[in-house]
């Protein structure tokens, strides 16, 4: 019966961090940080906390980068090979 289940906010996998030793936690933490680098291009203009921590697309228009303001890719800087 679903009425007997507790409310869940995080997954079992998340909460299983409690069962890790300190050394295991450090390894898992580092692996996450390494894997999370894959999204660096996607969150270049995002802020995780502080007073700028709302999605950049919700910033006032003049403060947004071109890709989010106009739907156009940002221009590479002068002299860039990319």
């Amino acid at each position: 019966m679903s009425a007997e289940l507790p409310d869940r906010f995080l997954s079992e996998e998340d909460l299983d961090l409690r069962s890790l030793s300190w050394e295991e936690l450090l390894i898992w933490w580092d692996r996450f940080l390494q894997a999370a680098q894959a999204s660096n291009d996607l969150d270049e203009f995002e802020y995780s906390h502080g007073v700028f921590a709302i999605p950049r697309r919700d910033w006032p228009e003049a403060m947004r980068p071109p890709i989010e303001r106009d739907g156009l890719p940002p221009q590479p800087p002068q002299g860039s090979s990319g």
């Binding site: 995080l10 998340d14 909460l15 961090l17 409690r18 898992w28 933490w29 996450f32 995780s48 906390h49």
Partner: peptide, 16 residues
């Protein structure tokens, strides 16, 4: 914030 959440052993969800 996110790294304190790791130290509280709730989740690893932030890279900053």
């Amino acid at each position: 914030s996110g790294q304190a959440v790791v130290l509280l052993r709730l989740a690893i969800a932030s890279k900053d």
